[in-house]
Design a protein around this nucleic acid. Structure first.
Length: 588
DNA sequence: GCCGTTTTCGGCCCGACTGTTTTCAGTCG
């Protein structure tokens, strides 16, 4: 096994977020209409607004209260009809069209539509001709052979549908980027060993550094496509081959992750790279613009009057349309195309800009590394400093430090810094925000620290923690807030917290907010990070590493920052040791 | 259902692979 996989039970999550719930309703509406055979462009319009809502950082309810129905109509992809539907939802909790269409399609059918490999046409046929209304029915007609006898069906198709169903239950969730990273890098190397591969690049959401990936797209240059694809489908971890052609192969690895490999000639590599990196929304937008300008973009190049005018380099694809090169992390159709047109893209922060890790645990609390080991790791990684933020005294389960223990640790930090002749370790703490919003150490103790990051670790399910966090931010000794929403990707929803409100208090108090770079957290996420930048709040990036071996995840934090349009100046720990210490001191 | 530097109507990205076909439909990304 290249990575561990524990099957997860399907469960319904409580959706507190109106934007997400509304997005889900539009998606369901689109699914249902697809089944009913409605105009595909109308369906696309619903999906488009669903994608928009998912990444819209403002609460749609508040937006509506402030800007009214005209405001809604100004949003991309929202016209008269959809604006009315949103308004109706905000007032009543649902909208008529949704209820009406949903009532025409059995819930079991809606679930079947989620299974990749079985589309609306097939499901409709099975429904009309065999009365299939849910998964159970479908499995029954597969076994009885009835499905295979339908026109257009056959034994192979049915076999594939059967396998798709099996796989659907194994591949429920997207995989966190940080979890799949080592696997993808090893696969990339393994493929690159082939004498027929001239160049190779991983594309898709992986290249865009999205927080989770659904599948992996790999692109390579070769003049012997079938040889490369042959090698690929014969990888020892392949458990199912979905496609095996001359330019495209598609496999499931370890019954868990789909990997698609495409082979293109050198002269098309840039265009293919652009195309397979996506996102879908970005590409549709880009192609629409190209078309208006008289170009046609495909994965083979950019064409004008059937003459190829660009394609070998990705930069050319954007360049020929008059756009600046758009870094993959920005390609979500969140305004990057317009910005590239006006030459106003941000100059994104890079990994090398990071001068230190601001959130690392040591053996003093629940980490495994000694302070000496952390200091050495800092040097190995080229850092100027690491802020050692162990837990505070109330967090008993994580070995929270008593005041005496904290002071003992501070003395050891001083000894180590003296030995290295510089402040390589900062005296830090991840201080708990208690139930009443006060902090877990008194001010006179916090005063002795270089960097204080406050965090919530204990909360009750329906509690709104916003005021607790705001109270903590008002404390003059707090610098930043750790993992501000508390979400764990795919495992735990955020706690009930109003980040927009918190960001405004942050701005007022001149405080910072964390991008926690742990692969399960990535918290703040990209969308909120972008919002922080807009409001004018700087961010701190920390790995929350509990072992030395987790400190590489700072990369993941940088990816979130890049996806959030952040520049070097938006992140505190791009400053050198002297600058950062001065600022941390002055913020009190 | 949205949208406008061709447009308030008529477009809406484009191609590979598979399985069933004998010229194409379905699905995916």
């Amino acid at each position: 096994m290249l990575f561990d996989y524990t099957p997860k039970l399907k469960y319904d999550i409580i959706i507190m977020d109106r934007n997400k719930e509304l997005a889900r309703m539009f998606d369901t509406l689109a699914d249902a209409l697809e089944f009913l055979g409605e105009n595909p462009f109308k369906i696309r319009a619903y999906r488009k607004v669903a994608r928009f809502l998912e990444s819209f950082p403002e609460d749609i309810q508040k937006f509506y209260e402030e800007h009214g129905i005209e405001g809604l109509k100004s949003l991309p992809g929202v016209g008269e009809k959809i604006a009315l539907k949103i308004e109706e939802y905000l007032k009543t909790g649902t909208f008529q069209k949704y209820e009406e269409v949903k009532s025409k399609v059995p819930d079991g059918i809606l679930e079947l539509l989620q299974i990749p490999g079985i589309g609306p046409k097939t499901i409709k046929k099975a429904y009309d001709e065999l009365g299939v209304r849910n998964l159970e029915d479908l499995e029954r007609v597969i076994e009885s052979g009835e499905l295979a006898r339908l026109r257009g069906m056959g034994p192979k198709k049915v076999e594939n549908i059967k396998k798709s169903i099996e796989l659907y239950f194994k591949m429920q969730d997207r995989i966190p980027l940080g979890e799949i990273y080592p696997f993808v890098e090893s696969l990339r190397k393994w493929l690159a060993e082939s004498e027929y591969v001239e160049a190779i690049e991983v594309c898709g959401s992986y290249r865009r550094r999205k927080e989770t990936v659904g599948d992996i797209d790999i692109l390579c240059i070769s003049t012997h496509g079938h040889k490369v694809i042959d090698k690929f489908v014969n990888h020892p971890d392949v458990t199912r081959v979905l496609a095996h052609g001359d330019t495209k192969g598609s496999c499931i690895f370890n019954d868990r992750i789909q990997v698609d490999l495409r082979v293109v000639p050198r002269e098309s590599f840039g265009a293919a790279l652009q195309y397979f990196t996506g996102s879908k929304q970005h590409n549709v937008h880009l192609r629409t613009i190209a078309k208006q300008m008289g170009f046609k973009i495909s994965e083979y190049g950019v064409f004008k009057d059937n003459v190829k005018v660009a394609g070998e380099k990705e930069e050319e694809v954007y360049g020929i349309l008059g756009l600046d090169f758009i870094p993959p992390e920005l390609r979500e159709d969140r305004g990057e195309i317009e910005a590239a047109m006006e030459h106003k893209l941000p100059r994104l922060i890079e990994r090398k800009d990071i001068k230190g890790d601001l959130h690392v645990h040591s053996k003093y609390s629940d980490g495994t590394a000694t302070l000496e080991e952390l200091a050495q790791k800092a040097i190995e990684m080229g850092y100027e400093y690491i802020s050692v933020c162990d837990h505070s005294r109330s967090v008993k389960y994580a070995g929270g430090l008593t005041i005496e223990k904290l002071r003992e640790k501070n003395r050891e930090i001083e000894r180590i810094n003296e030995k290295y002749g510089k402040k390589i370790l900062l005296k830090g703490a991840e201080v708990d925000i208690l139930q009443d919003g006060t902090l877990d150490y008194p001010d006179e103790v916090l005063k002795e620290l270089d960097f204080v990051i406050a965090a919530i670790h204990i909360w009750s399910k329906y509690e709104d923690v916003t005021e607790r966090i705001i109270k903590a931010l008002r404390n003059p000794y707090v610098h930043s807030i750790a993992h501000p929403t508390g979400r764990l990707i795919g495992k735990r929803e955020p706690y009930n917290v109003d980040i927009e409100k918190i960001l405004h208090v942050e701005k007022e108090e001149g405080k910072f907010i964390e991008i926690n770079a742990n692969y399960e957290r990535l918290d703040l996420n990209d969308v909120w990070s972008k919002r922080a930048k807009e409001i004018g709040v700087k961010l701190t990036i920390g790995t929350d590493a509990h072992q030395i071996g987790q400190m590489w995840m700072i990369e993941l934090g940088v990816y979130v920052a890049r996806r959030g349009w952040l520049e070097k100046d938006n992140v505190l720990n791009t400053l050198n040791s002297e600058e950062i210490l001065k600022i941390l001191k002055n913020r009190r």
